[in-house]
Design a protein around this nucleic acid. Structure first.
Lengths: 143, 143
DNA sequence: TATAAATCAGACCAAAACATCCGGTATATG
DNA sequence: CATATACCGGATGTTTTGGTCTGATTTATA
């Protein structure tokens, strides 16, 4: 079972965080990213490819090509990556899978989960990728 | 993507909540439960079968057989069902999938997620199934 | 005691998630 | 301009999850 994000999304978050933490904006090949994060190269490559369509990363083809963050990390939030990969349905669906879970027709956990869910949302929206730079570098250097 | 629980677990939670909310302790056939909750009969049947092994529900075979809650709903918590079906790994794993995510080597979301996760845990442990009776009945009557 | 209605075990099937492979194309660099 | 190296698109393979089916067994009850 996944915690809350799919593996694809987890890898996407890791990879984008990694790219956003770089000092230089030079592209990095998928293979280097994959090795650094110990995740399958082909897979992370596909994920980053799809993120180019969302304007989160850019890619450069050909020799010494690779991926880089597309814009100022101050302007990207974790929720952007989650939205691009897993979508935002987890912020709308009932935690127990009941249909039509809403304030008029709540499941037994509706209120408590609603509160946690909105805090989870804040966790992904309150800070931008630049705010995570230090922590990302520290984590990555210990992988 | 799942919210946090697998479909199996979601259905298990719904079914057990339903059984625990009954006034009588008489067994209810899987088909009735499935119809009431609009979930596949064969599937919920399998899930309840597996929960008999954990002592959460009991089953009666043969004509007019079915499933019922195994013990006093005051003595069962939602976490028991989650633990029996999905396990508790989501309470130990990194939300972004980083390896060795711990206070010495935290991911960028470690602290925030840790807090949310422990609140999610409380949500599943603070109350027993009897506490959810009213809410369950109200929800189920509107399905 | 025959029958109908249920669980149970295990095989089976389908779909989604996870992951790899290949052939094409772009491009930096020698 | 040749070559090596990278992304890209699409097909393919694998594993896990979600769901169904069948046949055996159990058991209440007519």
């Amino acid at each position: 079972m996944t915690v809350i994000f799919s593996k694809k999304c987890e890898y996407g978050l890791q990879a984008v965080l990694y790219l956003a933490a770089q000092i230089s904006r030079e592209v990095i090949p998928a293979e280097v990213i994959a090795n650094k994060l110990s995740i399958p190269k082909e897979f992370v490559s596909k994920i980053l490819q799809s993120l180019t369509e969302n304007g989160i990363v850019i890619s450069q083809k050909g020799k010494s090509g690779g991926f880089a963050i597309a814009k100022d990390p101050k302007k990207i939030k974790l929720i952007d990556i989650v939205a691009a990969i897993d979508g935002l349905s987890m912020f709308n669906n009932c935690v127990m899978g009941f249909p039509n879970c809403n304030p008029e027709n709540p499941c037994p956990l509706h209120d408590k989960w609603g509160e946690l869910r909105s805090k989870a949302y804040s966790m992904l929206t309150d800070e931008n990728l630049d705010n995570f730079r230090e922590k990302t570098l520290r984590k990555i250097s210990n992988l």
